[in-house]
Design a protein around this nucleic acid. Structure first.
Lengths: 165, 165
DNA sequence: ACGTATTACGTAACTGGTTACGTTAATTTT
DNA sequence: AAAATTAACGTAACCAGTTACGTAATACGT
């Protein structure tokens, strides 16, 4: 078994370790979906759930809800539209807005998908126990309260010249 | 304050939340380095530490140590070479191997860099307290023991046809 | 010692996200 | 009601990583 240096690199390694965990989970989710021979990507799950709840949402609403940039949503929506899982209409009140919603096909396939998600959830629940969910919440709270960058700036009373050049 | 849907989306949201935390930390680290007007990227930190310890390492060794693919390391090394932080020589015993090491310039700048890292460490330590590090270890252990994908396969005794189509 | 398998590195193409920028529509200011 | 500002979407270029693939050097089995 190879030596894992990240663990020995102290604090410097934490962020890398979190990233590795995150990437690993993403990678595995992808594999699970692939093994199902479903033409579905992990991210889509969230979009399905969101639109099932809200019926119609604009691009920016989805982006904000999921914490992505709006171009990211546009790309995902494009893909999902190609596979006819989503459709959109222009808002009659505000023609800038695109209202995204699930198609008939989506609604038909939802029960099957939800069954799969239920199975995936069970597996995830074996990893994400109480403690770990607590950890997530704690981390989120800390970072939400004050970003790392801001903490750094305040800590050392440095002038933020990252944008000046 | 906008509603955070990820929190309401149950298990489906965990992986997305971890990713968000991870991305956020990365983003902020980048900002800290930018504010220092140092031409250094966060990832490089680990390479510096590693090579300071080990003196000379091959591309694949670095990749394994840090959990990246080898092409990723090649790219990073290329950049660092351009700025003259790294240099490489071909192994005399095995001419396939490139031995990467720190340059004089790196060694000269190290004290200053280490001073900065020390400051960054202090800030990170305000986030990564005992509890969080414990849980991080726990998560890593769980995932190291058995990947999510494997858990899934075993759980449902599915044949892995993710590579077969 | 010779053919085969493996290892190490490098490049190319792709991926899932980002920021930057442009356009048009709506809103606010004056 | 005209001008300026802001909001929503779309596209383009970029970024940091990945996988897939090629090639050359080494190690291995017979």
């Amino acid at each position: 078994m190879k030596k894992d240096y990240l663990q020995t690199l102290e604090t410097a390694g934490y962020t890398a370790r979190i990233k590795r965990i995150s990437d690993g989970i993403m990678y595995d989710s992808r594999k699970v979906y692939a093994s199902l021979n479903l033409n579905i990507e992990p991210n889509w799950h969230l979009i399905f759930l969101l639109l099932k709840q809200e019926k119609k949402m604009t691009v920016t609403q989805i982006a904000e809800a999921l914490g992505f940039s709006h171009p990211a949503i546009i790309k995902i929506v494009k893909k999902m539209k190609l596979l006819e899982y989503l459709e959109s209409e222009t808002d009659t009140k505000d023609s800038r807005k695109q209202l995204i919603k699930l198609t008939k096909k989506s609604l038909l396939e939802l029960p099957k998908l939800e069954e799969e998600w239920e199975k995936i959830k069970k597996v995830l629940d074996t990893i994400f126990d109480e403690d770990i969910i607590m950890l997530l919440k704690k981390l989120e709270e800390k970072l939400a309260h004050k970003s790392l960058f801001q903490t750094y700036i305040d800590y050392y009373k440095i002038e933020d010249n990252s944008n000046t050049f």
